[in-house]
Design a binder for these strands. Structure first.
Lengths: 212, 212
DNA sequence: GCAGAATTCTTCGCGGCCCGCAATTTTCCT
DNA sequence: AGGAAAATTGCGGGCCGCGAAGAATTCTGC
């Protein structure tokens, strides 16, 4: 069990992260100073840097904080479930639990993704989650599993999440990004057959064209 | 055709990028100031920021500059070749053409990957390449191809490259990272069967344990 | 060739971020 | 209660990114 000291630290950290994200959504990534974040929580700007090494890290920390939930969600799947199904279900579950961003925040988020520092930090956060997910996958797969393969599967999951979210963000569709996310993972599971099918069709056309 | 002015600009840009990367390798990411880079090329520090918005971007720009070669390498594959093979071969070809880092630079690169800003920038560069690769894949796959699926395949390729390189970087093995890269892509093509096979074995063990 | 135009480079300065250090206050354990 | 450990904070320094304005260089039409 964590001591009182540790809990207060975590509370302060979460307060800072929450304030950073909220202010970033309110006024945009360029009008966000660490001074504001610190003042919002009631600590000195210097203290902010004891928790986060940059404001970007604070804004994106909520992604990293999903680490534990990812691990738990995967290991909670029934043991007889095939690995792909367990991974996909756990990943989707987590996304559902996280919820979809509010409609009014969409264009702000879009703006934030155009911010180089924030975008890079988000990618870093995804890699961090990927590492945790990889160990959970390896754990689930058993001792004989190749850690590299586990890492690869985790990378595929994160890629699907990133791509589905990014596509949803830049399109004014009404439906969520979860359907695209799931579809991408199912495709990856099957080795991207939809793509290769099209390619095969093209190849056939090319061959008949070459033969004529 | 590019005008003379444009060519000089590109030359200056490449000089800056080359100097940035070389100095970063020589003295480490923390002892690298834009003033040094600019002075090395013979321009003012302010001019540096006309070409790159940060020193990290300059150091990682060589990755982004591979965009065109990726595209060409893929579209140069014979038309009858299956998509996966074409993509894998083109990706490996590109990596081979780029060459393996010198042995003495390894620990410097390792140090650079620990630098938050540089690591994030490298991930951003990978995403940029991913976008180009995705359009090339879509082009190759034909008009009926789902752009999302193309993007996903590109993401898988970039994930494999990143994971293989990262693993190689943090292990003192003599062999290159290309073998791991190829193997990861082959696994992905087949839907990560090695992992799921292990999982099936574990599931069987679990079931017999539950039955007893 | 040349003079004007256009573009680029440089100098200067401001606001901001990040970090090391040391003092101070708060919290924890016995 | 009192000492130890740890967190917070102010200060100082270095660097970065960017804007403005003048200087320099290149381009263009003649």
């Amino acid at each position: 069990m964590p001591g009182l000291r540790e809990r207060k630290k975590q509370a302060a950290r979460r307060s800072l992260a929450e304030a950073a994200l909220r202010l970033a959504l309110e006024r945009g990534p360029d009008q966000l100073r660490v001074e504001d974040i610190a003042h919002e929580v009631g600590v000195s700007p210097r203290t902010f840097n004891n928790y986060f090494s940059s404001k970007e890290e604070a804004v994106c920390s909520f992604i990293v904080d999903q680490q534990e939930r990812v691990r738990e969600a995967l290991l909670a799947r029934p043991a007889h479930e095939p690995l792909w199904d367990a991974v996909i279900t756990a990943a989707v579950e987590r996304q559902v639990a996280e919820g979809t961003p509010r409609r009014e925040d969409v264009w702000r988020i879009r703006e934030m993704m155009h911010h180089a520092g924030l975008f890079g930090e988000m990618l870093r956060a995804h890699v961090t989650v990927e590492r945790v997910l990889a160990t959970a996958i390896a754990e689930r797969a058993g001792d004989g599993a190749n850690p590299l393969h586990a890492r690869m599967l985790a990378g595929i999951v994160q890629s699907a999440a990133r791509i589905a979210f990014h596509t949803w963000l830049n399109s004014d569709t009404a439906e969520g990004y979860l359907s695209a996310f799931t579809e991408l993972l199912r495709e990856a599971q099957a080795g991207m057959p939809a793509l290769t099918a099209v390619a095969a069709h093209t190849a056939v056309a090319d061959r008949s064209a070459a033969a004529s």
